[in-house]
Design a protein around this nucleic acid. Structure first.
Lengths: 224, 224
DNA sequence: CGGAAACCTTAAATCTAACTTAAAAAGGTT
DNA sequence: AACCTTTTTAAGTTAGATTTAAGGTTTCCG
């Protein structure tokens, strides 16, 4: 699940990123409204957390512009003041939910879950390609020959591959989406996980393989 | 059974929370209408007790907004004045029941039971999975090898697992559903209860196990 | 052909969520 | 007040996930 966090208070932002990553979200953090809009345009997220008070462009304007473009991305607004005006404006302007600072971590997580639940239900919960299935709710990868419960990182990589079959995904893109922009991890880990996944795919007799394209990345393909 | 209590008189609120918790409800208390709406957004409750007279937003408005969102959550209204007008307004606006202050504890409990009965009836009173049974009225967990009368928290955890067999339930979700948002308890308690339940399951020779999926949660599964 | 870059594989090291137990604390009962 | 049950805390342990490291293999290009 990919989230964008737009919050200008660096300290809070960092704390939130840590918490969210801990809970298996892939998070990109931005620090002003314009940046937020930028990121929202280019990338595809499953939800956004928008602070209302931000430099360059406030959260409400970002939200308005986002909705004007016809996006129905779930949006959770954060507001420092518990003023009615802010709240009502937030809801009227198309936010799905709001939360007033300060808030408990638990509550934030609950809100995010509830906000993205609808989406999770809509987007098919089981990815298929050839004879393999990947269950997004149980992390189960299965085919004729059996099944495996994938670990977290394994699952995220497999999900990216299966959501975009036959599409090339570069090592950098894996790193960026799963480990995050500022990760210290060696590029090597991607290779390691590709190796693990291949082993599992062949163990369950999958009709698909992960093909490497030297210099450009990996893609999920029909077995030749 | 999770309830939200919205009542601005602190003393009354505290008393009610105590009573309700005594009667095995998980209760979150809020002290004004906006907060109530806030908490209700997460859709996590089995019923709400709403005082009509509250700061920031009165109970009737909260109710109206709740119904506008399409929620059919059972609502019990509290009103200080025994005026018919208030009552009628309450029922018209979609409340399931009302109670005028002051009221007897017994009556409150009866009303809550009746309010949530429909919900309780729909759900079967005995949960089954494999060779194990969980009786919702006696808290009895049984299988070939014997039976245990579960304690409250144990029961609630087991109930969540058995109501959603094979589905992953995260530690946070347990906390949220059973302990409530603002609980101070360590995440550790969940592990402790999982451990207790496992011990009991194996003692009665259950055909099911509680499987942990590191980083994502627990699920009830067929014993391999 | 030779060598360098890219990729692969495995095993070992590390890290941390999950487990277990015991005991304290809280609450209720006799 | 002694006793019992339930809930929570605390602390030491285990095991699975992740990362590192190191030695292979393949592909490309001069």
């Amino acid at each position: 699940m990919r989230l964008l966090l737009a919050e200008d208070e660096k300290e809070l932002s960092n704390a939130l990123v840590t918490i969210l990553k801990h809970n298996n979200y892939s998070v990109d953090a931005v620090y002003d409204g314009l940046e937020a809009l930028d990121y929202l345009q280019a990338e595809n997220y499953d939800g956004v957390i928008l602070d209302i008070m931000m430099p360059k462009m406030d959260g409400l304007t970002v939200l308005k512009k986002l909705r004007e473009k016809g996006s129905d991305l779930p949006v959770l607004m954060l507001t420092a003041k518990s003023e009615i005006d802010d709240r009502v404006m937030g809801l009227d302007s198309g936010a799905d939910d709001y939360l007033t600072k300060p808030f408990a971590t638990k509550e934030l997580l609950a809100r995010i879950r509830s906000m993205t639940r609808r989406q999770a239900e809509v987007t098919d919960n089981i990815l298929r390609y050839g004879n393999i299935k990947l269950d997004r709710s149980t992390y189960e990868l299965s085919a004729e020959g059996g099944s495996f419960r994938l670990a977290n990182k394994e699952f995220q990589m497999m999900e990216m591959l299966m959501a975009n079959p036959k599409i090339l995904i570069s090592t950098d893109r894996f790193m960026e989406k799963i480990w995050g922009y500022d990760s210290e991890a060696e590029i090597n880990v991607v290779w390691v996980y590709i190796s693990y996944l291949r082993k599992k795919l062949s163990a369950i007799n999958a009709s698909a393989i992960i093909k490497a394209s030297r210099g450009s990345g990996y893609s999920l393909e029909e077995k030749p």
